[in-house]
Nucleic acid binder design. Sequence first.
DNA 1: TATTGTTATACTCTATAACTATA
DNA 2: TATAGTTATAGAGTATAACAATA
Lengths: 143, 143
Amino acid sequence: MLPTPTDAGLAAALRISVMRLGRRLRQQRVDPALSDTQLAVLGALERLGPMTPRELADHEKVQPPSMTRVIAALEEHGMLERSPHPTDRRQVLLSPTEQASALLRELRRRRTAWLDRHLRELSPEERATLRAALPILEKLSQA
Amino acid sequence: MLPTPTDAGLAAALRISVMRLGRRLRQQRVDPALSDTQLAVLGALERLGPMTPRELADHEKVQPPSMTRVIAALEEHGMLERSPHPTDRRQVLLSPTEQASALLRELRRRRTAWLDRHLRELSPEERATLRAALPILEKLSQA
DNA sequence: TATTGTTATACTCTATAACTATA
DNA sequence: TATAGTTATAGAGTATAACAATA
């Protein structure tokens, strides 16, 4: 049996558009400007709940000393708080502050707004096509 | 007149999938691993032809001293060559080596291959939907 | 004088190795 | 002894300021 005939050029063209569009979205920033790692840490804490520095380092694929710095910087910005671990006095639990949640909301709002502005310039038919493609893009992004 | 009724949630959902998929594509790397700036410089030289350090710095939105470092690192990797400017002896022209072109080809090939593997797991209908959405994503990415 | 490219220096973000406190 | 977190130190990559060569 022949291999599934892949749509010639679909992967290459999709790669270019998705990477370029992602770049444009990442350019939409918020003050105070936090680094990508700092934003990822806050996002992880918000999605998954309080974590220890070690868990965060594993989750973000950085070494513990690097995470120490990231945490210190976020603390200075008032973006996270420490609390003692209930059973192990070596560990600490980190939680995002309300200020951090507000910043993440504003960042999402700004990026969504940028995209929404450009979606409004499309025809209703084009938007319908995107809406049909959305679940497939979601599936690909989780691959 | 009411503002164009925007598809509720389309922008937010599209933002999430596109950024996540872009992240997965960027994770596909090639040895020797070059930084994003270094890859961008090689890509610009390949697309636009030989340029001076100043032109590259402007194009990549970094300061000239930073570009000096990027260029030095790429030279050490054998990724670009200098030639004298035909009319201005202050300037130098930078061109990618064949080795650099080969590396960019391999990087594109690898990222496209990753996406192609996952496209093959979709149904023909799903691929057709993506193909229909592609020109719209291209339009958005150039916004 | 103005511009191109580089050097000097500093700051940020990453890493590995070594240290302290606790298990 | 092993683990969690931090400190010490170093290596990229960025920046600004100051310099030499050329226009």
